[in-house]
Design a protein around this nucleic acid. Sequence first.
RNA 1: GGACUCGUAGCUCAACGGCUAGAGCAUUUGAUUUACAUUCAAAGGGUUGGGGGUUCGAAUCCCUCCGAGUCCACCA
Length: 723
Amino acid sequence: MDSKYQPQQIEGKLYEEWEKKGLFEAKINKDKKPFSIILPPPNANASLHLGHAMYAIEDVMARYHKLLGDEVLWLPGADHAGIETQYVFEKFLRKQDKSRFDFDRQTLFKMIWDFVQENRGTMENQLRKLGFALDWKRKKFTMDEDIVAQVYDTFKKLFDSGLLYRDYRLVNYCTRCGTSFSDLEVVYIERKDPLYYMKYGPFTIATVRPETKFRDTALAVNPKDKRYKKWIGKTIEIPGLLGPIKMTIISDPEVDPKFGTGIMKVTPAHDPHDFELGKKYDLPVTPIITTEGRMDFSWYLSQKNISEKYRARAEKYHHLKVAKAREIMVADLRQDGLLIKIDENYTHRIGTCYRDGSVIEPLPLEQWFIKVKPLVADVKKLLKDKKVKIHPKRFEKRLVDILDNFIDWNVSRQIVWGIRIPAYKCKKKSKVKSQKSKVDEKWFVSIDKPEKCLICGDCKFEQDPDTFDTWFSSSQWPFATLLTQKENKFFNYFYPTTVMETGYDILRAWVARMLMIGYFSTGKTPFEHVFLHGLVRDSKGQKMSKSKGNVVNPMDMVTKYGADALRLSLIFGVGEGNDLPFSEQKVVGMRNFCNKIWNMGRFIYMNRNQKSKVKSQKPKVLDDLKKEFEAEKKNYFKAMNSFKFSQALGDSYEFIWHRLADFYIEQLKDVIINGNIEALEALENVYLENLKMLHPFAPFVTEAVWKTFNGEESSILLEKLTG
RNA sequence: GGACUCGUAGCUCAACGGCUAGAGCAUUUGAUUUACAUUCAAAGGGUUGGGGGUUCGAAUCCCUCCGAGUCCACCA
């Protein structure tokens, strides 16, 4: 044995051997208790960041349960990460002076597919370098054919159950990404924008969006507002930039008389609040901004009998970007004497795209929505019946809160990189003309490509060009990955999975949805336990981000200090579910701990090999050692079985280093060197037992030492850990 | 505006109603022809954010105030 533990020379070889010997492979074994975890699938296209290294907690569980003798499945996978990946790919295209609009759908998809395949191996090998006991033979990709079939199946079931509907409503649209987002993907920021006070017939209104006023469909006041009471219900003519418009004054208690002038313009097509008002009072939805973020005045220009002045204006505005149009219109308003004043100090919050930071436009679009209410009710029952338990407990409250406030889920995305929605629109014109007819009546869903229209039977139906929100496929991950394994019974044996372990930041986006869709599809909870870990931050507690330049590459840490050291540093001394500030110092400390483990082994091993046959008295201190070790073991199992891994590790650390090494070995050093076999054996037993207990946390160093003691062919993973 | 988390040694955090509030790093002093200098022994460093309450006993439970952060909702 070397005088120092050198992980770089050992880790790669050990992992290869584990994988080759199939030690991570799961089988159906009726005599054993199944224990399963599905790895939250990292983005197939990207490298791992430190947050991914937190999956070490899952490895701790997987290896611990292997040692307990359970049948363990830890299933790896990769996510196609729709928007993320398409965004990265478009950046890559831009470098070559191209854009996605230069390619047709099939070509673009194929290009991204190849791009992802090229990069996919990186992430997988990084997971190996971290020592994760993943069953690679069962790995899945969200775009695998069989997974897609599963996703289609779920979509059809939702459709058939009436939980899916198509609706024309305001969605969060990023005109730069060219797609809508769910509400979870909108980031609100505080911003200063001019608030324009405009003359509006007999009134003054305040708005930050004068460019949308052409499509206002009403004015709204508070019913109790004395200033405007006499106007309610009246329709008046108001001079505007493009000539007079007719406007009806409605009243709604939601209008705040104290804001601005107490009278608001209602633009159902471009403001979520106004859209709701529009629905309530049956106002038409009349868009004026396109999905490209440009003004659309074609509705105006197609009219006859407009004066040359107004036509010229409309033509000037037409097709301008929103910001530019606003600028010009404000100038025109001023010219017409319609602008009263500008409040330059108005701050408000606006939605921006989480991906590229551009302003989100609320646009009316037809999209697929999942009715979440019934699903939420089922999940709440699961929680109440303790079919699924949340650790640490405080997150259960948050989950319930999330469920109570879940709004219908928009699953349509207008990007190419994703799973195409298997919905088709009947093109036959319906004979009955009814404005109130629901938009989804003309749609059908089919898992296989349909040969004829399932509604009318003979039209040239069209497939929805949209793809699914990435979370829609992810929400099915626990059961989809198991149902698509070769053995039929694999699913029955391992489902519901035992634990879902992930960061608390995706409790809403992922965990809640997995529970909803998982229960809907299988009638069971997808996992019995949810364990949530915190976020890795930098040493000052700041979020790591590329723009801040404080990102630590986990692989650098592995190269420098070994995978065990990195893993230990992410678990040691961290309260369950708490964020942890990452410091290289701590990794160094854990590297030292690994070295300590190694050298304790070295000391015992050296003396074992030169055992002399001197028989002497059994040292008294051995009784204390036994007692102390029994107590440690008890604590260890208690902590491990209640998801308190940090505590289990902390206790072991304390015992191994400061009791076993600093106290007992020091006490027994002389008698051992003099050949006291009893003392040596007692130490060896306790040490090797501790090696097993520590193996889930530090798999490499423990395995390396184990092999020294028990031969190259042995593996600590084949040992039993008993309480 | 709503919810949650946190405030403990210089720094980062443990301690989850019960021994003298602990660890890592940092600081100071000393040891070692050594299993390990990636070591060991020891020292300094604390009114547990302030105040009040419950209790035989509170960092821990309750109330209140102050401060920091996160998530959610978002009125033109």
